Computed example of a mutant assay.
Amino acid sequence: MVIIIYSVLLSFFISLFTGWLIIPLFKRLKLGQNIRKEGPQSHIKKSGTPTFGGIIFAFSTITTMLIYSRQYTNEVKVVIYAIIAFGSIGLIDDYLKKIHKDNEGLTPIQKIILLLFVSSIFAFYAYGDATIGPSIVIPFTKKILNLKILYIPFIIFYYVATTNAVNLTDGLDGLATSVTLLIMTFFTTLSFSMGYYSLSVFCGALSGALLGFLRYNSYPARIIMGDTGSLALGGAVATIAIILKNPLIITIVGGIYIIETLSVIIQTISFKLFRKRVFKMAPIHHSFELSGWHESKIVTVASIVTTILCLIAFLSY
């Protein structure tokens, strides 16, 4: 347990220092965010805020785990590979947005192809790994379901869904960071209690890195995580749950992710079929904004909801 605390503290301070170092650099390089025209008008003032912020917590987490090399097991390596692989897709997307000088990076088709490709690699790995697949735990029951060959398409879909859900949640200052910080704290405790000690050190390191990043990402944000960060976090969260043989736990702790995603799906279907909008704007956090909620209030409520969901998830064991 002591090493987990050390990993949290070390990663936190590395994240603080890294942010202090690169935010001015990114400003000089003019790596600012381009705000989409369809978004709330209040977000226009955020135009030019440095993006690529996911580099801060990804670097901090990996550096911390390199220092604690004794905890660098295969489990940890897989999660780090997931952060790098999915984060790289986000990095390409953010880079193209900067090159195009618009909020358009990879096309939806290009992004989904890259996500499917990377997800397939991890799905096949998990299926063939003796300590992971193809069995999953059913929350609130003691049942273990062996999906056999169906495990591969399930995990591919799971990765794509989770990474996109985190990506959609990253629309307000500190929202995705706060929600994921709480989820990673949950995974730190859970993995330790289940005997995945090296994984719990990693989860602690990522929690510390996110806590440090929140110093710069909370309202008003000095840096935005971008797709680099949101896809990296989605890949990490999904992989950790897979290693714990409980990918379905995300449907509980990641309730905010799911709500954000469903709001987009519902809005899209409703508009295409009936030419009517269910929400003022999707994802739903923008609808709350247009209803008069301040960004900080939305983030606070989402954090409260996630805390309760994490407690419920503990009961599922």
Rank of each mutant, 00 (worst) to 15 (best):
Y125A: 04
S316P: 11
G19T: 02
G19Y: 03
P139C: 04
G212W: 13
I84D: 05
L150D: 04
P283G: 02
A82D: 04
I5E: 10
I3H: 10
M281L: 15
G174N: 08
I62K: 07
P247E: 08
A165V: 00
Y216R: 07
A165Y: 04
Y6I: 05
T177Y: 03
I55T: 14
T261S: 14
T131R: 12
T261F: 10
D170F: 10
Y317A: 05
L25G: 03
A165C: 02
V118S: 01
V166C: 03
E289T: 10
P108S: 09
L190A: 09
G254S: 08
I136W: 04
S120I: 01
S11T: 13
A123G: 09
L31E: 00
L273I: 06
G254C: 10
S303K: 04
N34Q: 06
N74Q: 11
L248D: 02
M194K: 15
T251S: 14
L233F: 11
I3D: 11
V2K: 14
A205E: 07
T307P: 02
Y127K: 10
S303G: 12
T268N: 08
G255P: 06
E289W: 08
F17Y: 14
I84C: 11
C310W: 05
Q41Y: 13
T177W: 06
F271Y: 15
F279P: 05
P40Y: 01
R28T: 05
S42D: 08
A232D: 12
K97S: 02
F17D: 03
V166K: 02
C203A: 14
G235P: 07
I62G: 12
K272V: 13
L233N: 06
S230I: 03
S207Q: 01
Y219G: 01
L25S: 01
Y151D: 05
T51D: 04
I312F: 14
G254I: 07
P139Y: 05
F17W: 15
S42Y: 03
A176W: 08
F213I: 01
G105M: 04
K148R: 10
L190Y: 15
L66R: 02
G204C: 13
